[in-house]
Design a protein around this nucleic acid. Structure first.
Lengths: 186, 186
DNA sequence: GAGCGACTATACGATAACGTATAGTCGCTC
DNA sequence: GAGCGACTATACGTTATCGTATAGTCGCTC
């Protein structure tokens, strides 16, 4: 009756659970129930829970790298690209992606494998953004520092729980200026 | 034979577990074992697991507020204070405090109570740091934005997993300049 | 040294999760 | 329409954890 579930489907739903409650909240039977099947199916596709987690990391790593490469490759205006990237983390339009990002990073604090994965992704993203800053005329060291600050801000910001929306919008606008626009005026 | 355990002791050890593995890793029996007693004692001091978690939040909230107030009250040179605060998060000297900070924030994503707690702490800290920036001559809006950027950087930075130590030191030095020193030259 | 308050130790029942085993179903091909 | 590969459903054993109950111990006071 139902269309067959692919490993992708399990992984996707597992990411939803990850976003909602962290790695530890990924329970196989709960996951199966959310997909309206029983856990028997899970063990067809996956060796065990660890296998799922591994494949989630691979999946996430690949997508993140594809995405950042795509975004920078298509770049014409570095400032616009930086502002766009910034928006990915500050906009309320992508709460899920944001939650996943944080959850994976939280996961990395307990798991070597996850830590290794985010290290790969971070290197890629920092290199990409540092490149943008260089094309705005920053020297190598400053470009790297600005990239580092840039991503720290992106992630750290989702950890701060303050302010009302309009107030926040104002603050973030100014932050964007400090992070991006200022670097071009030199 | 053993000196009696106070609720504080339980809470402290629970924070250690929190730092190591997140809220979900706080298991009562494991906690008791780490204190070399059995869980019977736990239920003498605490109504149940939720009670422990609540009291941990209260404890954390109080300490964080005391700390930030103390640090700012004793202030003579705002730049030095800002750099000192920055150091608290970047130095490797306080990995535990850092880990707790992140773990509590991660916890806040699953729990209303934790979210409310960090909101209180964040408000306090942002107000304190914004005050420092104002005393460096920043206008209100800019001071708030800089404070927001400042703390986002602090937390976000512990989420980034890249670079070797010497490289990182260099980057962080520059970030400190972008965040703090620059704001004074206006 | 009896008794009490503040605990700790042990044992228990309940639930939830993991992973396995086994039997069933469904859709496709031949 | 038989058979096969790709799954799903059900049932099971095991372990971890929660919370409770109950009995013990320890140190102090009177």
């Amino acid at each position: 009756m139902n269309i067959k579930l692919l490993p992708e489907d399990w992984i996707n739903e597992a990411f939803a659970m990850l976003a909602e409650g962290g790695v530890d909240s990924i329970k196989i039977e709960v996951l199966a129930k959310r997909l309206n099947v029983t856990k028997g199916g899970f063990y067809w596709h996956f060796k065990n829970r660890g296998d799922l987690l591994e494949r989630m990391l691979e999946h996430w790593c690949q997508r993140r790298i594809e995405t950042i490469r795509g975004q920078v490759a298509r770049e014409t205006d570095p400032v616009a690209t930086l502002n766009y990237l910034l928006g990915l983390y500050t906009d309320q339009t992508n709460p899920r992606g944001n939650a996943i990002e944080l959850a994976v990073r939280s996961w990395a604090r307990q798991s070597e494998a996850a830590a290794a994965t985010i290290a790969v992704v971070d290197r890629e993203r920092l290199a990409a953004v540092a490149g943008l800053f260089r094309s705005l005329g920053c020297a190598d060291a400053e470009a790297e520092a600005r990239a580092y600050l840039f991503y720290s801000y992106c992630f750290g910001q989702s950890l701060l729980a303050v302010g009302h929306q309009d107030e926040l919008d104002q603050i973030r606008l100014l932050c964007g200026r400090l992070l991006v626009t200022d670097s071009a005026h030199k």
